[in-house]
């Protein structure tokens, strides 16, 4: 049952991403191209998402606990540090270069387009690279 609901939720997300235009690099890059072929559509994606998620989260998180779990898993970090700001800034650079973000690319895998697989492979490479650098950093810290 848990896997079935997870699949269904993934499907709602995937259909939403596909309809919204977020899986289409041409549209994403045009959203960022204010000085050129600007297409403001994607502002409506975040607008629509927040329109539902703000009241929805308020209602759900005001309740006792999720259906299948004993508690809500929410990030407990509150700090705004260089890591957050620079990491997100670097993400934006990659998004601006490729037109793909992870949430757009994962549903786009279903189109079977080879470029999407290329992007997701490179994305996994980047995640592993960062993980490698971070674990090396921890080892260095521990040894000093």
């Amino acid at each position: 049952m848990r896997l079935l609901t997870a699949f269904a939720i993934g499907l709602v997300f995937g259909v939403g991403i596909a309809i919204s235009g977020m899986m289409n690099p041409a549209k994403v890059l045009n959203f960022f191209d204010l000085a050129g072929t600007w297409d403001p559509s994607l502002a409506f994606v975040m607008g629509g998402g927040l329109l539902v998620a703000i009241p929805g989260y308020r209602m759900v998180l005001g309740g006792p606990y999720p259906t299948f779990e004993p508690r809500f898993q929410l990030p407990d970090t509150r700090v705004i540090d260089r890591r957050l700001v620079l990491g997100s800034g670097v993400f934006g650079i990659g998004w601006g270069i490729s037109g793909f973000c992870p949430g757009g690319a994962l549903p786009a895998l279903g189109t079977g387009k080879p470029e999407v697989f290329l992007f997701v492979t490179a994305l996994i490479g980047g995640l592993l690279l960062a993980r490698g650098i971070q674990s090396r950093g921890l080892r260095t810290k521990a040894s000093t």
Binding site: R83, L84, V85, L86, G87, S88, G89, V90, F91, G92, I93, G94, W95, G96, I97, S98, G99, F100, C101, P102, L118, F119, V120, T121, A122, L123, I124, G125, G126, L127, L128, L129, A130, R131, Q134
Partner: peptide, 12 residues
């Protein structure tokens, strides 16, 4: 872009 996004979202 893919590699840069991967590194960025890891740190961000």
């Amino acid at each position: 872009g893919g590699v840069i996004v991967g590194v960025g979202v890891s740190y961000g």
